[in-house]
Simulated assay, not measured.
Amino acid sequence: MVSRKEAKKKSLLRILALIIAVVIVVVASVLMQNWWNNRPGPQPSEVSITASVGEEEMEIFPYLACVPGTECPEGDIPALEVGPDESLHLEIPEPIHQLEWALLRIYDDPAANDQVLHGSYDATTAEIPGSVDPLTEDSAERPQLVLVEVSAVMVGLDENGEEAPFSVVWSISAQGEPGANPGN
C-alpha cells in the first residue's frame, strides 16, 4: 500500500513533469516562429513568373534586377507568341504578389498601352488580351500586344551581403523570336 506521503510525491512529480513539458513546447514554438519569420527569402533575380498562352508555358526570370542607382545589366526578353484572339496568362508568385507590383501592357498602338498597379495580395494572376478594341472609330485594326512587363521593388542581398531594395522587372515579348530583345 502506498502511503499518503508517497502519493503526494508522485502527484508533485507528475505536475512538475507537465510544467516542464509545457515550457519546452512554448520555447520550441517561439524559436520556430522566430526562425520562420526571419528566414531568408529568395534573391530577386531568382524569382520567376509563369507565362502561358494556351498549352504553351514558360518560366520568366527578371530582365532587370538591381539596387537603384547602380549599373544594371539587361537580360534577355523571352518571347511567347500571343495571337490577336488569345490571352497571355501570368502566374505571379507570392514573393511578388505579397508586395505592391505593377503590370505594364504595351501594344503596337501607343494609345492602347496601359499600366495597372496592384497592392499587396490584390492579385496572383493576370490575363492580358492579345489585342484590344481600337480606341478611335477611324481605326479598323485592333492594337496587337507587343510587350508585357511586371515590376516590383523587392528586398535582396547586395554585393556586400547586406539587405537592400532591388528594382526588379520581368519582361515578356508577345511577338517575334524567342530570346529576341525588341528593346535593342
Rank of each mutant, 00 (worst) to 15 (best):
S11Q: 15
P95W: 04
V155R: 15
R39F: 04
R142F: 08
G41R: 00
Q115D: 08
P44H: 05
S48T: 09
A174S: 03
E163W: 14
I77H: 01
S87M: 11
D85R: 14
G119L: 10
G156P: 04
G179H: 07
E177W: 11
G41D: 10
T124N: 14
Y107R: 01
G156S: 02
R4Y: 12
T70F: 09
P134D: 08
A7M: 12
T136K: 11
A164D: 02
W170R: 01
Y121M: 09
S120A: 15
E71T: 13
G130P: 00
V155C: 01
N160L: 12
L88M: 07
M154L: 15
V153Q: 15
M58K: 11
V150W: 05
Q98D: 14
E81P: 00
E127K: 13
G54P: 08
Q33W: 10
A174V: 02
T70M: 10
P78Y: 05
Y63K: 00
V116M: 10
E149D: 12
Y121G: 02
K8C: 13
S48G: 13
M154K: 02
S171C: 10
A7W: 07
S173R: 06
A102W: 07
M154V: 02
I19Y: 01
E163Y: 14
K9A: 15
E94Y: 08
A102D: 15
V82S: 00
E127V: 12
E159S: 12
E163F: 13
E159L: 11
V26L: 10
T125P: 03
V116T: 15
A123H: 10
D133A: 10
M32T: 14
I92H: 11
T124H: 13
I19E: 06
G69M: 05
E59V: 13
A123N: 14
P95K: 00
P182D: 02
P134F: 09
V30D: 01
A164P: 02
N38G: 04
V150A: 06
V26P: 06
G179L: 07
G176P: 04
A140R: 12
V47Q: 01
R14S: 12
H118V: 01
L147E: 09
A17L: 08
E94C: 06
A164M: 07
E127T: 13
S151F: 06
P110W: 11
M1H: 07
A17Q: 12
G41Y: 06
S151Y: 05
M1R: 01
K9G: 12
D114G: 01
Y121K: 14
N184G: 09
V2S: 13
Q43S: 03
G119A: 08
S87W: 10
L18I: 04
V153Y: 15
D114W: 02
S120F: 02
T136W: 05
D133M: 05
E46V: 05
D109P: 01
E162G: 00
V82A: 00
V82Y: 03
N160F: 13
D76Q: 12
P165N: 06
